[in-house]
């Protein structure tokens, strides 16, 4: 792989979307796109695989539910059954309706927090992480497309110019 990349800056999301399609149609690989807000249809246009994070949330939820059932059984039935207002205390199945709120809360707690932690880990965002958007304007109103250069610099530049880029920068990585 060559260490050169080209940065094309756009100032409109619709122009960016058509540009992405044109660049991909010309068989260039788009390394990354930085945008200030979620551009709908961009992941599809770039050919990104759908995210599986919702599936992980479901599995975390099941984990939370199982965990709550386990500890409720352990605490309320097995370890120290108590007679509280005459509620059945020697059978989990009979006592279970009183545990539904806790089971629900634990399901939500596990699913929400573990999913968000997964998102942070996968996208590498956490405290003290340094930002890696190449141009600070990409959090304001500009959209930046990064394409690897492989000896086709001039061809790429002219293609990007035609797609409506407002600034094209060739960068040498170390």
């Amino acid at each position: 792989m060559s260490s050169k990349v080209i940065h094309a800056l756009y100032d409109d999301d619709e122009v960016l979307l058509t540009a992405v399609k044109e660049v991909r149609a010309a068989d260039h690989h788009i390394e990354e796109i930085f945008t200030p807000f979620p551009v709908h249809g961009l992941d599809h246009a770039m050919g990104l695989a759908p995210t599986k994070i919702a599936i992980t949330a479901f599995m975390y939820g099941v984990t939370g539910l199982s965990f709550s059932i386990w500890f409720l059984y352990l605490i309320m039935i097995k370890d120290w059954p108590q007679n509280i207002g005459g509620k059945p205390s020697f059978s989990f199945a009979e006592n279970m309706p009183a545990f539904v709120p806790i089971m629900f809360e634990m399901t939500v707690f596990f699913a929400a927090h573990l999913m968000v932690i997964t998102f942070y880990m996968r996208s590498k965002i956490w405290p003290f992480q340094t930002a890696s958007n190449p141009d600070p304007r990409t959090t304001d109103d500009k959209f930046l497309m990064e394409i690897a250069v492989d000896g086709n610099e001039s061809e790429l530049t002219s293609l990007l110019e035609k797609t409506g880029a407002i600034e094209i920068t060739v960068k040498e990585n170390h």
């Binding site: 990354e32 796109i33 930085f34 945008t35 200030p36 807000f37 979620p38 551009v39 961009l42 992941d43 770039m46 990104l48 759908p50 995210t51 994070i53 919702a54 949330a57 699913a111 929400a112 999913m115 968000v116 998102f119 942070y120 996968r122 996208s123 590498k124 965002i125 956490w126 405290p127 003290f128 992480q129 340094t130 930002a131 890696s132 958007n133 990409t138 959090t139």
Partner: peptide
């Protein structure tokens, strides 16, 4: 505070899915 948010296309895709599931 921003946790190094950079706004990659993949980050946004996950961001939207996470928001929806949350």
């Amino acid at each position: 505070l921003s946790f190094g948010w950079s706004g990659r296309a993949k980050d946004w895709q996950r961001f939207e899915e996470v928001s929806l599931v949350l």
